[in-house]
Amino acid sequence: MFDKAYSGKRLDRDDALALFNSDDLFGMGKAASFIAENLHGKKVYYTRNRHINPTNVCVNRCKFCAFSRSAGEDGAYAMTIGEILARLAATSSPFSELHIVGGLHPDWPFSYYLDMISEIKKAYPRIQIKAFTAVEIDHFTKLSGLGLRGTLSELKSRGLDMLPGGGAEIFDSNVRGRLCPEKIPAARWLEVHEAAHTLGIKTNATMLYGHIETYEDRVDHLMALRALQERTGGFQAFIPLSYQPISGAIDVTRYPSGIDDLKTMAVSRLVLDNFPHIKAYWIMLGEKICQTALYFGATDIDGTVVEEKIAHSAGASSAEMLTTGEMINLITKAQKEPVERNATYEEVSI
């Protein structure tokens, strides 16, 4: 089953399915590590980043989103640009990547987002801004009337460096209809990312797994991403997101096992042969599975993540942040070589 991987041949849909159905966890880990080492040697990347979630007010109110609120509801908040800048100024540890995602605020005009990016860039010209999921970008097109390309190039001209990979969830339309009917359809998600890529904006991609989807759905999701990447080459990292059951959400109380997490990591590495990185996002996986994932093809563990709100409001039990020392320890103890990067995977040390 792993011959193709070792000889550099592309895995097809059936191969990918067979891998998900296989019990050969260690075989998968070995093959995935082989691919990862071919690409990056022993290097595993991390970054110093900071999250800003400018508002939790959202017109979508997706069922599984524990973060969002309706306008006026208890706990709803919306930051002014001044407040965002003040928060950044108050961040004591240096960071090279700023991650901005939030709700779809009913009252904010497109110009608010443009000003937000320009003001941040003016104050911090060297920090890379990774902001706005495809869901938000789609929302902006309705505000701006500029179309997808027009909207994205405005944002880029103000200093947007990258798009994060959120909002992909699972592409299959049936599952998507049950899981998050409020969200843009899969085709639109792919369209936003394709448009970004053609404008030279790099992006990430995600997949939320372990809820009501099947292995087939996971494979189809990976195949769609691989096909787009083949055309554009604009994806930097793929981030499999392990589902966390939360109260009041869709009626799924199970969660993927640690074994499934590792398997999904390895299959992703093997199938997405044209993606530079597979990321083990420690906020969702916890530090322990995140570290173990480094033996299953992951070559990025994300970052220090100061002030993460979204996963933690969904009950993520991971720490609120990791220090660089902790990240380096985690990577080194997995016998890998820690490399600090910025948002676009340039090696940096700040």
């Binding site: 966890l25 260690f26 096992s257 640690g258 074994i259 997490d261 590792l262 996986l285 916890g286 322990k288 599975i289 173990t292």
Partner: peptide, 12 residues
């Protein structure tokens, strides 16, 4: 001490 997920992996 390890959390459920790592304990699951330990089974392998």
């Amino acid at each position: 001490t390890q959390g459920i997920k790592t304990a699951q992996v330990a089974l392998r």
